[in-house]
Design a protein around this nucleic acid. Structure first.
Length: 444
DNA sequence: CTGGGGAAGGGGCCC
DNA sequence: TGGGCCCCTTCCCCA
């Protein structure tokens, strides 16, 4: 993570001298007025308009090819390094940059983006509970299953342009998200002009890239999505969108999921999702309109939304079917719909399936990073807080993670447990051995 | 320039 | 739920 460049926020959080133990559970709350700015400023696609104060991830989003954004956009996440990212794919893409700044200064401010071409007026009331279009895990996890719900569920934002157009244009805005229509804080309406692209969806396209962290973080970082209406409501804003930015959101890999799906899972997922498009609306949407606040404002998205929900149903069905014969709670009777891996609890299935779907419900309040699990977020936040509870007894060097300390200890011990099976050369880390073998023995 | 190595970040799994 | 652990990757430094 470009440690040498972490001279901004990261380095500023240096452990006070004399403190041997860090308190890690501090919520890392840097106010910065975000509580209000959230409702007034929307920056979709944070390519270069970040607050310099957030230096930690800043450089990452400035074309350096952050792991996160790069993954999302290029879909190379999880790829072995043999398949190095093509420079052309890592090049700045014609991403739709929606830098929406408050004009009127009111909650219902007219927001204006930075450039002024091809205006596109969109009236939308937004409630985004997660950049991954999280549905309510409290609901997803419910049902016939006894296992507690996961802290973040997601549907896969796979949409097809043509279908999206059909369902989001014109009179569709009132029906954009019927699931949240009852709740003024969670409706998501998109008013489209003729010929205009469905901005609302494009907005969500960028949401999938993490731009809604600021809305979702207050929810997801707590692992509680029931706090509906807090922070994340953006009151009726008129968005003027310009630029020739390609407002496309098809099933392209670069927009599929979070980009952290592994291998061909996205292709696989895409295929799967395209298979059953006739699923009925999931029941939980009716139970709680808020839970679907992240649903895309079109029928296709709804279908896809349902399909992922159905994946949970599927897990539940498997729980009922397969698991009905077993009374052993430890038995892995819940299976991933993608890889068929077994788990003892549907919640675990759901969490695991984020590997395939790229769902990352947990957002850092200080940067654009998102995580599939709460602990990932918590661990990440030490980047901002500078918490380094683990110190090397040999050199007093401190680390934020124990495994890093463990790795560091090899420096002192000279341990090189990884030996080349061909030449016997030893390495301290497996990666060196792998590289060595690749270069010298054509293996790996 | 190359390769080894240190540090640090995220992903994922297991307990 | 969280910690431990491992893996992978990236950045950086240095010989």
């Amino acid at each position: 993570m470009a440690r040498g460049q972490l001279t901004g926020g990261h380095r500023s959080f240096v452990k006070p001298v004399g403190h041997n133990t860090w308190i890690d559970d501090q919520p890392d709350t840097v106010d910065e007025g975000s509580g209000t700015s959230i409702q007034h400023v929307i920056v979709i696609e944070s390519a270069d308009a970040e607050d310099p104060g957030h230096g930690v991830k800043q450089h990452r989003s400035e074309g350096e090819g952050p792991r996160q954004s790069g993954d999302i956009q290029t879909g190379v996440a999880g790829a072995p390094y043999e398949t190095m990212e093509d420079p052309t794919t890592s090049a700045p893409q014609p991403r739709t940059r929606l830098s929406i700044t408050e004009v009127s200064g009111r909650p219902d401010a007219v927001l204006k983006s930075e450039t002024d071409t091809k205006p596109l007026t969109v009236t939308q009331r937004l409630l985004h509970r997660g950049s991954d279009h999280i549905s309510d895990p409290e609901r997803l996890g419910q049902g016939p299953l006894s296992c507690p719900p996961a802290s973040g569920s997601e549907y896969l934002p796979v949409f097809h342009q043509s279908q999206r157009m059909v369902h989001s244009r014109g009179d569709g805005y009132g029906d954009a998200l019927d699931t949240g229509g009852d709740d003024p804080s969670c409706s998501y309406t998109t008013e489209m002009g003729p010929g205009n692209m469905p901005l609302g969806l494009e907005t969500q396209t960028d949401l999938s890239k993490g731009d809604w962290n600021q809305y979702s973080s207050s929810l997801h970082s707590e692992g509680c999505l029931d706090k509906k209406g807090e922070v994340i409501v953006i009151d009726e804003v008129t968005v003027k969108m310009e630029g020739d930015a390609p407002l496309t959101w098809n099933a392209d890999k670069t927009h599929l999921g979070e980009g952290h799906s592994q291998g061909n899972t996205r292709d696989f997922l895409e295929t799967k999702i395209n298979v059953a498009t006739h699923s009925h609306l999931h029941a939980f949407r009716d139970r709680d309109s808020v839970s679907t606040s992240m649903a895309p404002s079109n029928s296709q998205g709804r279908i896809l939304f349902d399909q992922v929900l159905n994946s949970n149903d599927r897990a539940g069905a498997q729980a009922q079917g397969v698991g009905a014969t077993s009374g052993n709670s430890k038995e892995k009777r819940f299976f991933c719909m993608f890889c068929n891996k077994g788990f003892s609890c549907p919640q675990k299935v759901e969490i695991h399936q984020r590997v395939h779907t790229g769902g990352k419900p947990f957002s850092c309040t200080q940067c654009q990073m998102r995580f599939a699990q709460a602990r990932g977020l918590k661990r990440h936040q030490r980047v901002h807080t500078g918490v380094k509870p683990y110190s090397c007894p040999q050199c007093e060097k401190r680390f934020s993670r124990q495994d890093h300390l463990k790795m560091h200890l090899k420096v002192h011990t000279g341990e090189k447990p990884f030996a080349c099976m061909h030449c016997g050369k030893r390495f301290s880390e497996r990666r060196y051995l792998r590289i060595h073998q690749q270069k010298n023995h054509s293996t790996g």
